[in-house]
Design a protein around this nucleic acid. Structure first.
Length: 892
RNA sequence: GGGUGUUUAGCUCAGUUGGUUAGAGCGCUUGCCUCACAUGCAAGAGGUCACAGGUUCAAGUCCUGUAACGCCCACCA
């Protein structure tokens, strides 16, 4: 044991302990040791990422689960790692290149990819270091990266299996295209944002007998006029009488003067716009399908970068938005704009760079999702995977039920290259593991690999098993798969969680985790999502610097209700800091009282020497253990944190320590030793409960107080169990607990009287207590010394027969009546007014209680224990009421 | 358009299967540098539980509807 500093210094303590934990290998799980496994895989942050407050929340929760389960004796692995984040990382490196005035094409593919690896080696570890500073007890020996050799092999394996099964196909299809990232995106990667746009009504001249009619038009409405350059038809509803005569006729496309047939299609809603739709198969998903139905050849008018191509005629080379402006100007000049309306619609934006997504026709790879989705849906329906809170089951099920094929090819360079090869000689196409040297069909060596890379989520969805060495069978995989809980935010249920369930079932034959805990999104105090661009984000490292990692963790847990969004502002972190300080000082107090230190393995608690207070705190401790554990099981971290706060601060510090001072400063050596034993017992147990929340502080105190030797970390100390048998043995019955609770109230009343009479805290007073029952009188008599200290009394008399004088300050307490025999200090008028008010309130409560108990229906229908409860409380109310009434009468 | 969440003290939020007088932290008022802690101690004020119906012996809690705010999903140009 060493003497604790007057001030706790979290900065040095936190990093010191973290390093020790790592060196000793406490974070590592070894499959060879067997036992009951507990496995959590981290949602791998992007290598480009820096820790933001959402990560802090997410990882604190995981760390709490993992530390708790580790203490509870499980063979625990929390598997960490990072995601290569294809587009995001490529963007970062390209941005750096641009500063040198270069593009990735200047370097070429191999050199560019090499450059990204270099970047990754240099900067990719940032978020990992930050997680360590947070105290995350990840098994760092197992750290993985989605482009590791092993994980890349898993990706190839999965691709080949799906390809050979016919679940991967290549097709010319409309996909979400990001003109800035130059790549296709999946549906999930296109984020819809409500935007105020314009709806342009454009006149398409009608041709009759090959001649343009000067004054006859069909008006179509569009939000993207520039796409008219790719129009191949105009469609109307077959039911629309207005256009009946025009069906089959020809229109002239403005500007390009291309002939467009008027066709009918059920897709067209006659009620929207003009009821006539321009058909642009290369630039709109609906139009694409219409085009297929009517065998129309799509005309692509855009380059991959969002500029217009040569098919755009006079607008070739213009950016799509510039082109839009120019076309509107030109159409206006030609008198072909009927009107322009303001129009609210949802526009897709690239989730990586926020550029407006362009639906664009291109050749892409897809995964057929239906066959994978069905068993994954079933797994949630029959409870093999359980979402917490439950409501996410439905969100998941809806997505799974309406699943669409997954576009997995990206036209970028950073990522897993698609393992499909083409033979130039025989045009054979096949998927292969590794690097094939020749065509398996014709043996030609002129083979090419597909240029595209896979969606970054194509490696993430394998994370729960690829990280343990799949596809190779091994002991790690056998023990740690499937994992227990996945902790994540709702934003990536579709991106990641749903796909992991599919992959787990498809490739492992078993779901990847049993429970998915979805925590809330962190928002600022105005309810906005925290983001760098809004400048409203709170940097966890600044908070750690200012308050400590433990304070950050604990505060986050206190204010995060299960599954609810979190509203944050800087001052919230004082909760954790103040709590830490309080605990530190409580420990210092014990040390000061017990300079010889806690005796390890010394004699245990002696039931015969326990006071009511000792029994009370031990019973409360047991309640805290039970409640905290139960709340952790149910992912109610805020309730668990609250349990610990209430126990340590209020029960232990405010009441127990204060009660105990009387003994600690007294002369009874046996009692003194006993109180210290109880204190150490309660405090060391509470430290263990608190460890998952505040790992560094608890470890520092664990050793500072001598609860553990150098080799005995609190991390591996056993998780406390409720003290059911012990409480029995110690005589900590509910009678004792109720008595001490009631005595708390008595003391509060005594202090209240003193405050009411404006008596200085330093002045010692006499009190007279008239107990309700002889039993209570006995209990109180045994505690006179404690009461004297707590009330700062000169003398306390427990007198069952006491009759007070009228002008004496008095109060009613749960154990009886309490009087201060100081005459004349009471303003009789004010006092009786107060009593009258109290009487009125009590009368109201009593009336309600009576009404309830006199209601025959209540007796018939309520549970007997509820009735008993009400009867008891009615009795108490009645007693209290009578007393107040009597007092009031005495006052005159 | 579909789905979903929220509405409780001045502020931020808890409130589990309906059951005594609805809780916490912060802030506020009053008094304390009391020999662990002023990042503290003690006492206190403050709430027709969004609104309207309904079920029930009993509703903050269950049901129906309304309103406001938020989030997710969605190919009406």
């Amino acid at each position: 044991m060493k003497e604790l500093d007057k001030q706790y210094d979290p900065k040095t303590v936190e990093t010191r302990w973290y390093n020790i934990w790592q060196e000793k290998g406490y974070f590592h799980g070894d499959a060879a040791k067997g036992g009951e496994p507990y496995c959590v895989v981290i949602p791998p942050p992007n290598v480009t990422g820096i820790l933001h407050i959402g990560h802090a929340l997410n990882n604190t929760i995981q760390d709490i689960l993992v530390r708790w389960q580790r203490m509870d004796g499980k063979n625990t692995v929390w598997l960490p790692g990072t995601d290569h984040a294809g587009i995001a990382t490529q963007n970062v490196v390209e941005r750096a290149l641009r500063k040198e005035g270069k593009t990735r094409h200047d370097l070429g593919r191999d050199a560019f990819v090499e450059k990204v690896w270099e970047w990754k080696e240099e900067y990719g570890g940032t978020i990992i270091r930050q997680l360590k500073r947070l105290g995350a007890s990840c098994d760092w020996e197992r750290e993985r990266f989605t482009m590791d050799k092993g994980l890349s092999e898993a990706v190839e394996e999965v691709f080949c299996r799906l390809y050979d099964k016919g679940l991967i196909y290549r097709a010319n299809y409309i996909t979400n295209w990001c003109p800035r990232c130059h790549t296709a995106l999946s549906d999930e990667e296109s984020e819809h944002q409500d935007t105020e746009g314009k709806l342009y009504y454009i006149r398409y001249p009608v041709k009759r007998d090959g001649k343009l009619m000067a004054s006859e038009f069909v008006v179509v409405a569009t939000t993207r006029p520039e796409t008219l350059l790719g129009d191949v038809a105009v469609a109307v509803s077959p039911k629309d009488e207005r256009y009946k005569a025009l069906v089959g006729k020809t229109l002239s496309l403005p500007i390009l003067h291309r002939d467009l047939p008027v066709i009918t299609d059920d897709f067209v809603d006659p009620a929207f716009g003009t009821g006539a739709v321009k058909v642009t198969p290369a630039h709109d998903p609906n139009d694409f399908e219409m085009g297929q139905r009517h065998k129309l050849t799509p005309i692509n008018v855009m380059q991959p970068d969002g500029t217009m191509n040569e098919d755009a005629g006079p607008y070739a080379g213009l950016d799509r938005f510039e082109c839009r402006k120019r076309i509107v100007t030109d159409l206006t000049a030609a008198g072909l704009i009927e009107k322009i309306d303001v129009h609210q619609h949802a526009v897709g934006h690239c989730y990586r760079c926020d550029t407006v997504v362009e639906p664009r026709l291109s050749l892409q790879w897809f995964v057929k999702m239906k066959p994978l989705a069905e068993p994954a849906l079933q797994a949630v329906v029959d409870g093999r995977v359980r979402f917490v809170p439950e409501r996410w089951n439905k969100v998941y099920a809806d997505w799974m039920g309406n699943i669409r094929d997954w576009c997995i090819s990206r036209q970028i360079w950073w990522g897993h290259r698609i393992p499909v090869f083409y033979c130039d000689a025989c045009e054979h196409q096949w998927a292969a593991r590794g690097k094939p040297g020749q065509c398996p069909k014709c043996a030609a060596t002129t083979i090419r690999q597909d240029e595209d890379v896979l969606d970054t989520w194509f490696s993430s969805w394998l994370w729960p098993f690829s990280t343990f060495g799949w596809p190779n069978k091994n002991p790690d995989l056998a023990l740690y798969y499937p994992g227990n809980t996945l902790v994540t935010a709702s934003e990536i249920i579709f991106f990641w969680v749903a796909r992991m369930v599919m992959a787990g079932i498809e490739f492992m034959g078993e779901v990847p985790f049993k429970e998915v805990y979805i925590h809330g999104t962190v928002r600022d105090d105005k309810g906005r999502k925290m983001s760098k661009s809004l400048g409203n984000s709170i940097d966890p490292l600044t908070i750690i610097e200012e308050y400590s990692a433990d304070a950050l963790r604990y505060s986050l847990m206190m204010i995060t209700a299960t599954g609810q969004d979190v509203f944050l502002s800087n001052d919230k972190f004082e909760i954790g800091r103040n709590f830490g300080t309080k605990i530190w000082n409580a420990a210092r107090f014990m040390q000061m009282q017990d300079p010889t230190g806690y005796v390890r393995g010394g004699p245990g608690i002696d039931a015969a020497l326990l006071s009511a207070d000792d029994r009370h705190i031990l019973a409360k401790l047991s309640q805290a253990i039970e409640s905290c554990t139960e709340n952790l099981k149910r992912y109610r971290f805020n309730d668990a944190a609250q349990d610990l706060y209430a126990f340590i601060w209020h029960e232990y510090c405010d009441w127990y320590v204060e009660y105990s001072k009387d003994v600690l400063y007294g002369q009874n050596a046996a009692r003194r030793a006993e109180v210290l034993k109880v204190m150490h017992y309660a405090f060391s147990t509470a430290l263990r409960l608190l460890h998952p929340f505040m790992p560094h502080l608890t470890e520092e105190l664990w050793h500072g107080m001598g609860y553990g030797t150098d080799e005995e970390t609190i991390m591996l100390a056993p998780w406390p169990k409720p003290l059911t048998a012990e409480l029995l043995q110690w005589g900590a019955t509910s009678d004792v607990v109720n008595y001490v609770d009631a005595r708390h109230e008595l003391i509060r009343m005594g202090r209240m009287l003193r405050a009411d009479c404006s008596i200085a805290p330093s002045q010692k007073l006499d009190y007279i207590i008239k107990a309700n029952t002889p039993h209570l009188a006995d209990q109180l008599k045994a505690d006179v010394s404690t009461l004297t200290a707590m009330l700062k009394a000169k003398d306390i008399t427990i007198d069952p027969a006491y009759v007070p004088s009228t002008a004496m300050p008095s109060a009613l307490t749960p154990v009886g009546a309490l009087y201060m025999p100081i005459e004349g200090l009471v303003d009789a008028k004010a006092e009786s007014a107060k009593l009258a008010k109290q009487l009125e309130e009590l009368g109201g409560h009593l009336e309600r209680a009576n009404a309830k108990l006199n209601n025959p229906n209540f007796f018939n229908k309520a549970k007997p224990e509820v009735v008993a409860q009400f009867e008891k409380s009615r009795q108490e109310l009645q007693e209290k009421y009578n007393k107040v009434k009597r007092l009031l009468e005495m006052m005159g």
